[in-house]
């Protein structure tokens, strides 16, 4: 009884909040998906948009390619963020949180402007081009790394590194340094200690960092339209188009709902996986 009351107290406000300001609004939105057009009445409802979605190869293809981009982005980001968090925790000293915060500050500058600045740096007339031109390595200025699918991934990684470091940082921080010392005292090599002790203990951080990057990247639309070039659009651009210029809220809703379904499958799988991992770690 006591436990039940604690759960209720802890969960009530977040649940009501989500119910009121997310589930309810989204349900209103969902009702659009069964309308003929954005402005037509709900009755008679239609499933035509769902059918159209499933029978339009372009949509599914973009969904798959966006999932791939998001996945690659998440993996690269974690690979780059983990050493950062590791260094800060074990060698960062007293200032470690400040050092991490320092890397997050650039996010307070408008994203659009930061990308614009990168375009200046990497553009035809930018620093790198001028340098290459003066070395005679190229004979005509051209944009480097910009306007392609890889540019989208690079830019997303750039954005997410400090954020992905946050959950890893806070899991690593609770690892008892004595565990690591004990492992080393027992003669384990640093690599073995890392693989056997540090890495398993930081799994929850890794998983949440993965979500942190993967989920929002899946629905990303700003980055592809800024640096994606003529072929770089992602699924999120489709959704955005349906809502704005396309005036097709029903289709936009169907597409968002598909994203939700995918993510819920993912979270369910991961939840199960993480619980098992934790048990094996304890055992």
């Amino acid at each position: 009884m006591e436990k039940k009351r604690r759960v209720i107290t802890l969960l009530s406000i977040p649940s009501i909040w989500l119910l009121l300001f997310f589930v309810l609004p989204f349900t209103i939105m969902l009702l659009f998906s069964i309308r003929e057009t954005t402005f037509s009445p709900i009755f008679p409802p239609t499933l035509s948009h769902y059918i159209e979605f499933l029978t339009t190869p372009v949509y599914l293809r973009l969904l798959l390619s966006s999932a791939w981009i998001a996945f690659v982005t998440a993996v690269i980001t974690i690979l780059l963020a983990y050493p950062l968090a590791y260094y800060l925790i074990f060698h960062g000293g007293k200032h470690r949180l400040a050092l991490l915060s320092f890397l997050i500050l650039p996010a307070w500058t408008s994203y659009l402007l930061r990308v614009l600045a990168w375009k200046v740096i990497l553009g035809s007339n930018g620093i790198i081009n001028t340098f290459l031109l003066s070395l005679g390595l190229i004979d005509e200025g051209m944009p480097i790394f910009l306007y392609s699918q890889s540019a989208v991934i690079i830019t997303l990684v750039y954005v997410w590194i400090p954020y992905a470091a946050l959950p890893i940082f806070s899991t690593l921080e609770r690892i008892d340094i004595k565990l690591i010392e004990a492992s080393q005292d027992l003669g384990a090599s640093p690599l073995r200690t890392f693989l056997r002790v540090t890495l398993p203990l930081s799994t929850p951080g890794l998983v949440s960092a993965f979500f942190f990057v993967f989920i929002p990247s899946l629905g990303e639309w700003v980055t592809p339209s800024l640096v994606g070039g003529a072929d770089g659009i992602m699924y999120g651009n489709l959704v955005q188009t349906q809502f704005l210029r396309g005036l097709n809220w029903p289709m936009g809703t169907v597409m968002s709902t598909v994203l939700l379904l995918i993510v819920s499958v993912f979270t369910m799988l991961f939840n199960r996986h993480v619980t098992m991992k934790e048990m094996s770690a304890l055992a």
């Binding site: 375009k119 553009g123 035809s124 930018g126 051209m142 944009p143 070039g229």
Partner: peptide, 19 residues
């Protein structure tokens, strides 16, 4: 096409840089 421009500043910017 190099890209589709979205915000208008971007267009002037790309022209000025010669992209």
């Amino acid at each position: 096409l190099l890209n589709y421009w979205v915000d208008y500043t971007e267009l002037s910017q790309m022209l000025a840089q010669g992209d």
